[in-house]
Write a protein that binds this DNA or RNA. Structure first.
Lengths: 246, 246
DNA sequence: CGCAACATTGAACGGTATCAAGTATGGTGG
DNA sequence: CCACCATACTTGATACCGTTCAATGTTGCG
């Protein structure tokens, strides 16, 4: 599986606020990239965390399965995201992460990371930043899960994913691949698949979006942002923040 | 306001996985402790982050206010918690944090932190850990906000708060101060105050808890854990994880 | 072609919100 | 010490958003 590691490296460094030297030493210890099929499990629940895993291409989701079989998606990842920066300070993965599309990811063994950290505080800061970025997204999710209608939730989720793909430079023009089924959308939004369907139709009938065949087009960005009360500042931090050892 | 800083220091170090030397240099730059009244604002929304703030005693909450005036509590803090480790990598606080009880907190200016980080990677790791711990809690909240009934949400919230107070060594025996009103509970759980009231009565009638006059007693811990499907492992990481530069 | 997963639609049910009133409780000033 | 007020808590009736169940249509894949 040939894959342009160099291109990926620079993406990593810009996301993680590392300078080229740090980036190089971090990636020196990486395992060969792994490619995964759609729905393939990238990290098992309760599995011991043995390496830092970065998603190089594709999308992924973290899922929590309840005792009655229902599921809640607690995170969605796009290319460039770190999958488990949040889990590493703990000893075990707290939920399983699986691919939403075919995907490629890179593993950096913790052994290597542990060697690096004492001499490269910027790497610790970068991982801290990744974790903080994830936390900011989670806060937003908590707000709409707790307090907003199905329509606003769905709209906000679509805004967020589209914005993040844009930040990663992955959206070409006005439409992009959107691999979640309505059932999966429901699992992310805390809604039933049936209601997701109806809510999607509502957004469509308002001329805000088009979605079919795994392809999403945002027809009226301003209108959608309004329905969602979407304020992307919580995502811009990903670019702006470059604190620590720069 | 005399306050035993020494005692607080050791608490900090045990929580943040720092050795005594690092702890000392971190706290060397701290401002004099600030004490705040109940409901006093500790961090304003959109305020520029200028220091790391640690809650030394009391409890606090992070609130997000929606355009229609409704609120969602996105975090609850107990003594020993870092209030804004999550915000620091960003430039601004993303929500306001106010005291739930009278409280004391300690500010460590970012200027000082920036000086320290290059030479003390363990401090960056500790802040990363704090952020990861908060993220783990948020994941749990997302699961019950999205997928669980009012009863399970409420039970889980009570379990979490009680468990965290216990970890901090703050619960004396079988009852403890619980400063949230039913309205505030609703703002945390995504429920109306009226429904919180009815759900509380349900838990009371099952002999699981007693709650009145800001004092909570867990009568049947096992039963409450069951209703909540509470698995405290996501909080134990706070003690166990001591990765990096130890 | 046929099957399985996904999407759509309708009807009935239920958990939670909302509205509205009434009851403690605690603090304050006279 | 009491009257008063504000805040919190409690209770009932009704409405609504979203769920569940069930059926049908659609798409894509082996």
């Amino acid at each position: 599986m040939s894959y342009d590691l160099a291109a990926n490296f620079t993406k990593l460094s810009s996301r993680m606020a590392l300078n080229p030297a740090e980036e190089k030493s971090l990636l020196a210890g990486a395992m060969p990239p792994r490619s995964a099929q759609k729905d393939e499990c990238l990290i098992e629940q309760d599995e011991e965390t043995s390496s830092l895993i970065v998603l190089c291409s594709g999308m992924a989701r973290a899922v929590r399965t309840l005792s009655d079989g229902r599921q809640q998606i607690v995170a969605v990842f796009v290319a460039g995201d770190t999958l488990n920066a949040t889990d590493i300070p703990f000893l075990h993965a707290r939920n399983s992460i699986s691919a939403l599309t075919s995907a490629i990811c890179l593993s950096i063994p913790l052994r290597h990371l542990d060697n690096l950290l004492p001499d490269h505080p910027a790497i610790a800061c970068a991982l801290w930043l990744e974790t903080a970025a994830r936390s900011a997204i989670q806060q937003e999710w908590m707000v709409w899960l707790g307090r907003r209608t199905a329509q606003a939730r769905l709209a906000h989720f679509l805004c967020e994913v589209s914005y993040r793909l844009q930040l990663s430079g992955l959206t070409s023009g006005d439409g992009f691949e959107f691999p979640l089924t309505q059932r999966e959308l429901g699992d992310a939004l805390g809604l039933s698949p049936v209601h997701v369907n109806r809510t999607l139709q509502l957004l469509r009938s308002q001329g805000l979006i088009e979605l079919s065949h795994q392809r999403l087009t945002i027809r009226d960005k301003k209108g959608l942002y309004e329905v969602a009360e979407f304020d992307p500042r919580y995502l811009d931090g990903l670019r702006l923040a470059k604190r620590g050892a720069t």
